[in-house]
């Protein structure tokens, strides 16, 4: 890797990091925060990013780790994907996070890439933003001015653009526990094992005592400049009594998912054009919901 020259700063604490970032902001320097380097290093390698300095948070232990905090699971921003997917707390209380994280890239990348890094990169093709959106996660950020919280629905502003102000550092993410009765699935469609999702669907579905769906949360990966919720389908799924395709050919789940792409603006790239992505969103949402129902 031969990036353009940059300065390297390794702050000793989060406070230190915030100060460095604030100073850079004042000086008008283009600094980038380095976590696991999963996405930043390729950008540097290709000279698509020319930061004047990298602020490496990699050795701040306070940003790393998973904690059970009653109604939510707190995942430190620097927790690696591998740590997340192996965490007993994550698997027990927020299994959708573990399921999606296990599909991220490959084992080597999962040992370096971080949960918070993937969120702060805000790549709609990343698997975790759609999950955060579906679960209504809360992002905890800090700057020299103090801490604030950003709900997932406001965190992903645009393509590669999180709602982080200059000088702000993502500390961690609160992942709400949804309670009992929920089923989860992350359906990822990609061309090779290590490729980004062409389309991904994060589904959390709660079934009532009668077997009908009472609540569904659907996050879509790579269906627009940000991750998106399939709101129309979430509403349509309410009250649906899923059954295997009946003898009359009806499939209420499929019908409910027929507008899973509503409100999306999927990109065109080498792997798929928008109409195909829309189609995939519909089919995969049906499958994700079906799988979440078990």
């Amino acid at each position: 890797m031969i990036p353009a020259p940059f300065d390297y700063i390794r702050p000793a604490s989060v406070e230190d990091a915030c100060r460095v970032l604030a100073d850079a902001e004042t000086a008008g320097d283009e600094v980038k925060v380095l976590a696991g380097g999963q996405s930043l290093l390729p950008l540097l390698r290709l000279r698509l990013a020319y930061p004047s300095a990298l602020v490496d948070l990699g050795r701040l232990p306070e940003l790393r780790g998973v904690a059970d905090r009653g109604d939510h699971v707190y995942i430190g921003a620097l927790t690696t994907h591998d740590e997340v997917m192996r965490s007993g707390v994550v698997r027990e209380h927020v299994p959708l996070v573990a399921l999606a994280t296990a599909t991220v890239a490959d084992p080597a990348v999962r040992h370096r890439g971080t949960f918070g890094g993937s969120m702060a990169h805000a790549d709609p093709a990343g698997d975790l933003p759609a999950v955060a959106l579906a679960l209504d996660c809360v992002f905890v950020v800090r700057s020299s001015d103090g801490e604030r919280e950003i709900p997932a629905a406001e965190f992903f502003v645009d393509y590669l653009e999180p709602a982080l102000e200059p000088g702000e550092v993502l500390l961690g993410v609160r992942v709400p526990k949804l309670g009992s009765g929920w089923g989860f699935h992350y359906e990822k469609f990609h061309r090779t094992a290590q490729a980004w999702a062409t389309v991904g669907v994060a589904a959390a579905v709660r079934r009532g005592d009668g077997g009908t769906i009472e609540e569904a949360r659907i996050g879509l990966t790579n269906m627009g400049p940000t991750p998106v919720r399939a709101r129309v389908t979430e509403v349509a799924l309410r009250g649906v009594a899923p059954s295997p395709s009946g003898s009359n050919g009806s499939d209420p789940l499929r019908d409910a998912c027929a507008q899973a792409d509503a409100g999306t603006s999927p990109p065109a790239d080498l792997h798929a054009r928008p109409d195909y992505r829309r189609h995939l969103a519909r089919v995969l949402t049906r499958r994700a919901v079906g799988a979440a129902l078990g």
């Binding site: 395709s245 050919g249 499939d251 499929r254 027929a258 065109a268 792997h271 798929a272 054009r273 928008p274 109409d275 195909y276 829309r278 189609h279 519909r282 089919v283």
Partner: peptide
């Protein structure tokens, strides 16, 4: 995508259950 498009553009009609949501041609850039 190529396989899906080939199916979508093929002439033979196949029962609906195996042909969900075929795109309209106007959608195909």
């Amino acid at each position: 995508e190529r396989i899906w498009r080939a199916l979508a553009e093929a002439e033979v009609t196949v029962p609906a259950q195996s042909r969900a949501a075929v795109p309209s041609t106007s959608e195909i850039a």
